[in-house]
Structures are given as C-alpha cells and as structure tokens.
C-alpha cells in the first residue's frame, strides 16, 4: 500500500478542508446544523476509508465526493422526515454579520433560487461556483461523466436565469445589487 497517502498529510488536508466543506454542505442542504452534521459524518467516513485515496489521486474532489454523498444521504433519508428548519434563521445569521443589506438580499435571492433547484443541479452549481471545482473534478465528486456535469451545469444555469427571485425587478433592486457588486 505504498501509494496510500500519509496519515499526517491526510489529517492536515482534512483540517484545511473543513471550513469549505461545511460551507459547501450548507449551500447544498440549506441549513448550518445539517451541514455541520454532514461534514462531521463525512470526515469520520473519509478517515475510515482513507485507504481508498491513493497518493496520485486529487484530494479535493475525493473529499467533496464524500461530502456530497453524505449530503445526498441526508437529503434522501433524514431531512424529508422532519420539519425543515426555517431559512429565515440562517438569513438572520447572515444579516447579523457586517454585510450591507444589499449583499444580504442578493444572497437571499440566490439561496431561494438555489433551494428551488433539484438536488443534483444544486450540487453541481455549488461545486462549480462555490467550491471552484473544474468540470472534471465535479464529475469525480459526483461519480458521473464530465459530459453529464456539463449538461447539468447548463440546465442549472438556465433554471437559475429563469427563476423569479433572480428576474429583473422594475424597481431596480436586483439590477442595483448587480451593479454594486460589479
């Protein structure tokens, strides 16, 4: 098993990837506590199955694969069987930070649109535009072909573009927010 990663090295990678994993899981699950649970579970599993990661494999897609699968499992098994936590709680958390109101509103719109996306489309959008994975790495992370990823990304972008929360508002709110960001 000489091609396996060093345990200390893996520990460092996991520690460094914890924050981004939690935030990615949050975007997928829409809830901070669920995200932390999912990542904790993911790390335990990643540690348990660390031998499946060889030294010539890329760590980032491998870790995201574990996280995405855990999130999928939660969305399939746990979350549908209990009341969804209110998104407002999370948004309140966001607003409590030092962000201006405009940024909070844009994030609110994006999260609303993201929540309305099917899970498989939401995952590729998050991995592409938040985790900044390439299409090839996303394919590895979700266990699909790169062509499938490309197709899903295209579909997800089209849906987001057509989502009412992200449509142009005659009052200029959304448009203004874009201008402020740009």
């Amino acid at each position: 098993m000489s091609d396996l990663v060093d345990v200390a090295e893996l520990r460092t990678w996991l520690e460094e990837g914890y924050a981004s994993s939690v935030r990615t899981a949050y975007l997928i699950l829409g809830n901070r506590l669920d995200a932390e649970d999912a990542v904790q579970e993911s790390f335990l599993r990643a540690w348990k199955f660390r031998e499946s990661l060889s030294s010539d494999s890329s760590f980032k897609p491998w870790l995201y694969r574990v996280v995405v699968n855990t999130c999928n499992s939660k969305l399939r098994k746990e979350i549908p069987h209990r009341d969804r936590r209110s998104q407002d709680d999370e948004l309140a958390g966001i607003a409590s930070i030092d962000d201006p109101m405009g940024r909070v509103a844009l994030s609110n719109d994006v999260m609303t649109a993201l929540k309305d996306l099917p899970t498989h489309l939401r995952i590729v959008i998050v991995l592409r535009y938040y985790a900044d994975l390439s299409e090839r790495d996303i394919a590895t992370a979700i266990g699909r072909q790169p062509g499938t990823v490309k197709s899903r990304l295209s579909d997800a972008r089209a849906r987001l573009a057509a989502h009412p929360a992200l449509q142009f508002d005659p009052s200029g709110d959304t448009h203004d927010r874009q201008e402020r960001h740009s």
């Binding site: 966001i94 959008i125 938040y130 987001l160 449509q167 142009f168």
Partner: peptide
C-alpha cells in the same frame, strides 16, 4: 440573463461565508 457567473460565484460565497466555522471542530472529529 440577469447576472453572470461571477455574480453567482460572489453571491454563493456571501451566502456560504455568512457564518463562522469552528476551527477546533476538525481536530475533535479526527
């Protein structure tokens, strides 16, 4: 049509970074 990919990227980052993440948690988990 409404904003480009960079805007989406920024918006997602803002939404995801809206809360703090414990730095000691990974140590405890591992």
């Amino acid at each position: 049509t409404m904003f480009d990919e960079e805007v989406l990227r920024v918006a997602l980052a803002q939404a995801a970074n809206g809360f703090s993440v414990s730095t000691t948690q990974p140590d405890r988990i591992l």
